[in-house]
Design a protein around this nucleic acid. Sequence first.
DNA 1: GCCCAGGCACTCA
DNA 2: TGAGTGCCTGGG
Length: 289
Amino acid sequence: MSEHYVYPEWIHLAHTFENGQCFRWRKIDEDHYVGVVHGQVLEVKSVPEGTQLQPMNEQTFQTTYKRYFGFGENLRQRQEALAGRDDHLRVAFEYCEGLTILRQDPWETLVTFILSQNNHMPRIRSLVEKLAVLRGKEIHYLGEDDELKEEAFYTFPSPQELSDVSEEELRTLGFGYRAKYVVDAVEKVLSGSVDLQRIEELTLEEARKELMKIKGVGVKVADCVLLFGYGFQEAFPVDVWVDRALKRFYLQEMKAYSSREAFVQEYFMGDGGLAQQMLFHTLRNGRYT
DNA sequence: GCCCAGGCACTCA
DNA sequence: TGAGTGCCTGGG
């Protein structure tokens, strides 16, 4: 049996893993998931004392995974502050308790959201998985579940590992017109014309511009990468669902602002990313009547 | 079997 | 600067 570690903070795993911010977690049963993160197969379970991770030791947790799960970032207080703004956010707060915004690997997040455009979630999952099988490293599950032990898992391939992948090869796998976007992202990151490390030091606006140098990356995809990959808490990706929510709930308020962007920054108090996830998740799951 | 999805790029006014 | 349209594909 591999080592495990329990962090004394509870998060709602289903709300966190099944809200469209990540695509490599799989449900084993209630409050129990398995996924590939930072090059290893990780099992996560909600337990009475908090959140149990396996395999994990305290040092690895502190250096890598604490950040990934967004632990220790006053999530509840921030959600509560948003809930105080209006009834729509209050409803979302009650439904989304324990929803966390993950801080995933920027490269993986970038490619994942390039693949997300014009796609359903199950298909996004399938494409991400295909890419992992294509060039990722095979790794194995180290827990106690006998079925999972038999399975092969794959890391998400680095830009170097994808350097020899052609548009043609990706098209054959069903990537469609997004194939050339993935190839372009690999080229620009490897050549240094897009510097993924530098992005975290930029302002939201500058960071967006940098990411949008890549073909197939527009404002929506860039904002997803900045929020889910870099932790820009003020990033506010607007997809069809969030667009519906804004029009349905905030049309009047928005008119008082010079732009939608200005409204979002002011109204959600710099915590647009969290507000966006709450509204998206609540609306998409039919909790607004 | 058809429809359409957590968009983007390109064109044209 | 904004609206309109084509794009790959397979899950629902």
